[in-house]
Amino acid sequence: MSNELDFDQLLSKYKADPFTYVDIFSVHTGRVSFKAGVGQEVASAGGEWLQILGTALYEINRERNPRIVNAQVNGIVAHINSELEGQFVEAGVKLMTIKHPLKKKEIIEIILKDVLSLFPAPESAKYFFAIDIQSRIDKKGARAVTIEPGEEILTMSLMKRDTPVFYKGERGVIHSIYFKPGLSVGQGEPLLGVCAPEKLPLIQKIITRVKAEWDSEH
């Protein structure tokens, strides 16, 4: 968790290039066939329940089981490893890059992720707060709730199998909640952003500064 942030440098970086570059990797082994081209605009999953699939990016075929992989973010296809077209690849091979335009809220979140301790999802599943944590959030708001290492904070729910999730990290307050009840979270994606109580003023300073600067120039 960093105490020192060079706001001017950070903000000028995002002003100069208000994009993030999202690498797309093969989801498993198989033969790859690209479905999108360089420069093509791609859309993320849409609809109220994210039921409308994003743009098809590539197909991967393993043992005659073809699987289309769709975009999870919107943007422009910036790069494709075209030499892999029709080739057999291992899982986790970088296939392409999407240039995703950042909104103000996303820039704030990206900067905050450098400052907060992120608590990642242990498995792809849906999550909800443990009863005790939820009642404390309901009473006081998340940013007034301090969590301790080893405390049961969430329940991971998959096929009616509920698994308690225990907090591993430094004692802190729940600053950011990255999941919504009812929507799946991928393995490794952040569920919570936690910070020490004394860092809350720094966090607020970041939010205020980015909002002010961005609103004045964009």
């Binding site: 609809g47 329940w49 994210l50 039921q51 409308i52 699939l53 599943a125 849906k126 729910s157 998959l158 096929m159 009616k160 009812g182 799946s184």
Partner: peptide, 20 residues
């Protein structure tokens, strides 16, 4: 995997792995 394959009113298809 036991996930429930659902077709929504707009014709899109979604698979749910938890919920009821």
């Amino acid at each position: 995997s036991g996930g429930l394959i659902l077709r929504l009113a707009d014709g899109s298809v979604k698979t749910e792995y938890s919920g009821e």
